[in-house]
Design a protein around this nucleic acid. Structure first.
Lengths: 345, 345
DNA sequence: CATTCACCTGACAACGTTGTCCAGGGCCTA
DNA sequence: TAGGCCCTGGACAACGTTGTCAGGTGAATG
């Protein structure tokens, strides 16, 4: 924030305060407060005078001061990975709706999958004294949150569990979903199936890999090292990983994509292939139906809503042990599973 | 917000204040403030004592109090239509990045295209004394914002201009983009082209329709009434509109879709057709390349960034007349323009 | 007519922080 | 050694609101 050197800032537009309203209406400060808050015990006549003064001056209550006095901010903080990711938009929106129903506002921040930035955001929110926090963790150690939670900041983790502390978490069934998706490929006759997932430090990535391995094992299939690739979801890396497992000595005939970003790039890679390769992806993506992509769908809005409801239950005083809620995923089978070449190509 | 009846709240976890830190460190209140804010004029030894006390107590500065004292909140409010829409995610994210660079946090709210809700959100943000506002307007009358702007709340409108007040606006070239898109269809030999857009009270919708009409006129083509449909972007309505213009006495051979939601539904409708129908859509959508959909792309991130930069320039004291910035759109031609049938169908 | 009571109203303190201003101590210089 | 200056530290008020409490008025009751 640019720091101006001036000390007495010229106060751009001075805002009227309750004091100003009181003076103009010829009443006491507290009476204005009562009118503004709709408290009982004000004569209609007095109320009218105050209301007129408010309108005349364009007064609007300063919630900063109110917050300071009352201790509650009626706001919650949401830290997620990247608001631009289509998975997080609906999640954020769902949380906002629940917050709105509880009269709270939502502050959100993107961690960009960086643990330091996550912590920075979380602590900034705490400094603002948000009533509660919903966190999609980037880091693996949340002990830094312990004093805040002890101080009364309700906290719920979403999509991935907290690290090193005991806290509420609302998750999707990554293991089960991946297992089901891979089993689907097996059922369609595939024997050599590749797995491309996110970075191994991310809980969902390893869980989905676990699901993949479980499904393969259950089918009595060996997994070659070359078939598994965990790492960044940058398009170049995904492309390289996919091409590697498609061209090795034991080329895969199907790929399981660990999340929506991987799926998108994988679709592009596979669309250019001569021999069709099947694809199943974790997370539904727009227009996947038209491309015939089978997916393991997790409803990010439900994830968000569930977490937010849990948060507000805590804020309403419900005091139970932290729990882990796991929401089921849905396999949506579409088309043959092979990606057609792009039209006009 | 659930109101607890208790008056003296038991103060869940009592948070230590600077006073507590001062007492523990055996220094004055202001000295703690100095250390916390990294101000000069504190002996290393004193600073160490204070820092130790801070760590021991788990103190974190209460920014609510700070805000009250300083007058600036280092936060900005963003009101958009729906965070779950893939167009707004990147826009919000871009604004967040700019805000972050300026040390500010972002509060956002979705108006759900409802003018009352927009106003409610905006005024709630003002009550929190956000330093600035970025608004994607739902309503058509923003005179209610005048006192706030006069009181110093910097305001920038995005995607659509403000109604009835003079304020900064950052827009995409809806007219030019639509004209170019329709001209593209004309160039490919289409003569009967339909237009499906959003509700007529939305500025971008009417601008795009204007662009469509301009392109048709420039090509010397008449526009039949049945070829134009403005209204809600609900899938059912778009589907009905598309089917109507495809089956009338003068069926269209191409459709221009007014925004991303229309495009998505239109793609689905057209994918099921026997005779291929061309489609050009406003807004790029994920995987449009694989489906060969030509689009008029507007970069929502740039839109957001431009607006945020303008906002912070104002907050830094730059005082110029409100202006309207129009960003160009890009036509991305893909494939033949015809939608292929879904695979496996 | 005195007393009680309900109801309205306002003075005051407090929330936790920061800006202002002054006091005291150490050090340098004349 | 005295004077002055700089540097550090702290007392105090103020930001705008709300909770507490007491005063004051008028009506109802004995």
């Amino acid at each position: 924030m640019a720091e101006t050197a001036r000390h007495h800032e010229p106060r751009y537009g001075i805002r009227p305060t309750m004091k100003d309203v009181a003076a103009r209406a010829g009443v006491g400060l507290k009476t204005v407060s009562r009118v503004v808050n709709g408290e009982a015990g004000v004569t209609p006549d007095t109320e009218r005078r105050v209301t007129e003064a408010i309108d005349a001056l364009g007064f609007r209550r300063n919630d900063s001061a109110r917050v300071l006095r009352k201790g509650r901010t009626a706001s919650i903080g949401l830290v997620l990975e990247d608001l631009a990711d289509p998975f997080y938009g609906p999640l954020s929106r769902a949380i906002e709706e629940v917050a709105r129903a509880h009269g709270a506002l939502l502050i959100n921040g993107s961690s960009a999958e960086d643990a330091d930035r996550e912590q920075e955001l979380v602590l900034a929110f705490c400094a603002r004294r948000v009533d509660g926090l919903i966190v999609i963790p980037a880091g693996g150690d949340h002990r830094y949150l312990e004093p805040e939670i002890k101080a009364g900041v309700a906290t719920v983790f979403v999509d991935r569990p907290a690290g090193r502390i005991d806290a509420d978490a609302v998750l999707s069934d990554s293991f089960g979903g991946a297992r089901e998706g891979v089993a689907h490929l097996v059922a369609h006759g595939h024997r050599r199936i590749g797995f491309i997932g996110d970075q191994p430090r991310i809980h969902t990535a390893t869980e989905r890999l676990r699901g993949y391995r479980a499904a393969m094992e259950e089918a009595g299939l060996e997994v070659a090292d070359a078939w598994v690739a965990l790492g960044s979801t940058e398009p170049e890396r995904v492309r390289a990983a996919a091409e590697a497992m498609l061209s090795g000595p034991e080329p895969v005939t199907a790929i399981f994509a660990g999340n929506n970003r991987v799926t998108v790039t994988a679709v592009r890679v596979l669309a250019g292939r001569e021999h069709p390769v099947a694809l199943v992806g974790f997370d539904d993506i727009e227009l996947a139906d038209l491309l015939g992509i089978t997916v393991i769908s997790q409803d990010s809005a439900t994830l968000g809503r569930t977490a937010a409801e849990r948060l507000f239950r805590r804020l309403d005083g419900v005091d139970e042990a932290p729990a882990r809620v796991v929401l089921p995923t849905t396999l949506i089978a579409r088309g043959s599973g092979e990606i057609p070449p792009p039209p006009g190509a």
